[in-house]
Each structure stands twice: as C-alpha cells, then as structure tokens.
Design a binder for these strands. Structure first.
Length: 252
DNA sequence: AGCCAGGGTCTGC
DNA sequence: GCAGACCATGGC
C-alpha cells in the first residue's frame, strides 16, 4: 500500500487508517480476509468495494502476464496488487505534488493540505479539500504546505478544474491518450503525472506511467520495447514491474 | 557538503 | 525534436 496513494498510515497493530470519499476507515488484512472496522454495510458496498477494486479480476490479468518472463517473475515476487479507485481530483493533485519528490515528504505536504483546507472528521482526520476550495487560495495561502515550486502547479490545477477549463467529470469516458492531453493543459502535469492520475484516479488500466524506475525496467528487460500484448492492462503490469524493481534495490 | 527524490518548464540549438 | 539548467524542500 505504497506509491499509488499517500493517505494511509499503518498502525502498530498492522491495520491501515485513512480517508477516502469523505469517510474515515480503518482496515486490516488477516491472511486472506479483509477486516473493515466500524463500517456501515452501505459504505462497504457503495464505496470500499469500488475503492479497493474488490471485484476486479486480477487473477486473469496475472495469468496473462505469465507469458512474459519478466512479468512472470514480478507477479510471483510482488504478490497481490490492486489499482485503487481514488477520487479524480485527489489523484491529480497528489501526483502533481509527487514530482521530483520523495514519498515521506509527499505524504507530509498532502497531510498539511488536508489539515489546512479539508473538512474535519473523527480522530483528527480530514477530508481531501475540493478543487473549488483550493481555487479560492492564493499562492501565499499555500505557503504553509511547504510544497516548493509545486504550489503554483496545485493552484493552476485547482483553478482550471474549478472553472471547468479542464473538465474532469467526463474524462473517464475518453480514450487514455485524449484524456492525457487534456490533463496536460494544467501546468506541472506532464505525461507521467497525467498517466498516474488516469491510472489511479480514473481507472484507466491502459495508462502506463513511466518514471525513473520504470525507465530502468524498460532499459534492462525490454530493450526492444514493452510488448503490445498487455496494452489493455499495461498500468497493472506497470505496478508489478515498479514494485519488482524497487524491492531489488535498497529502498524505503 | 552535496546528492537525490515515482518530473516538468523553459530556453537554446 | 532534444539536451541541459533550474526549480523548493527535506532527509541522509
């Protein structure tokens, strides 16, 4: 649970706490069972099943990946991965913040963003602020986030989305390439950030974010290019490859 | 001290 | 098109 979302923290008992879709959740995995604490059944059915993509058929995707030597190793070593269905604006904003940044600091900036501009929930938790709320801010208002040069990008994203200059409501039904171009109208969003937002915030499983780690994977294992066979689920494959190459290095 | 962090922009060929 | 400086901040 690391790399595609930044708002979940693991407690001493191993369970994870976080906020999504305006709700606080504590969840734990015990062997093959997920335990949702204090969760109304409606929230589970209408939100968390979707959010954790519990109905997604990852077995059949993994079965397809077996035909590729590297992907086969990656799926075997990494184990279970799911593409979270995060809120579109939150994904866009989070991956703008992620650029040229490290995970602990990304979490810190997002934490301060929510505390400063989100709505309070229980347990000192806060919702992710809306684009409309951030669009009302000035650059100085965002200074306490200590987001550095990314602050102006956050502001531009909030303003363009709030004003519908960039319409994210209908983006999910566009082709990934079209949606990518649309998101790149925002300052600070290039191909990689756009693909991350599309994969994790719009459930575009064919989006294939290329960061420094994936570049290393492509260079090492796919010098002739990434096979076209997995195009439909390239983003899922990307997650396995990402975690595979990361666990081979000394990492966080 | 200096390098790096799940990149992108801006400038100059 | 493509390379290279530069961008804020914090951890190591």
């Amino acid at each position: 649970m690391c790399g595609q979302c930044f708002r979940w923290v693991q407690g001493e008992d191993g369970s994870f706490s976080g906020v999504a879709y305006g709700r606080f959740l504590r969840v734990a995995q015990m062997d093959n069972t997920l335990v949702f604490y204090n969760t109304p059944i409606n929230d589970f059915n209408e939100i968390w099943v979707e959010y954790f993509d519990l109905n997604g058929d990852y077995d059949s995707m993994k079965a397809q990946f077996c035909s590729d030597e590297t992907l086969n190793m990656a799926t075997k070593q990494v184990g279970g991965i799911r593409i979270l269905k995060q809120e579109p604006w939150e994904a866009i904003c989070s991956f703008i913040i992620s650029q040229n940044n490290n995970i602990p600091r990304i979490k810190g900036i997002i934490d301060r963003l929510c505390k400063e501009f989100g709505q309070p929930l229980e347990n000192e938790e806060y919702t992710f602020p809306t684009a409309d709320r951030i669009a009302q801010c000035s650059l100085e208002d965002l200074a306490p986030l200590r987001a550095g040069f990314r602050a102006k990008y956050i502001l531009d994203a909030a303003q363009k989305i709030s004003s519908k200059e960039v319409s994210i409501d209908t983006l999910w039904q566009e082709d990934t390439a079209v949606a990518q171009k649309e998101l790149m109208k925002i300052k600070g969003i290039g191909p990689k950030v756009a693909d991350c937002a599309l994969l994790f915030g719009f459930y575009k499983l064919d989006a294939f974010p290329i960061d420094v780690w994936i570049k290393k994977v492509l260079k090492t294992y796919y010098p002739d290019g990434f096979p076209n066979d997995y195009k439909q689920y390239a983003g899922v494959a990307q997650q396995y490859l990402f975690h595979y190459i990361r666990t081979q290095q000394l990492s966080y």
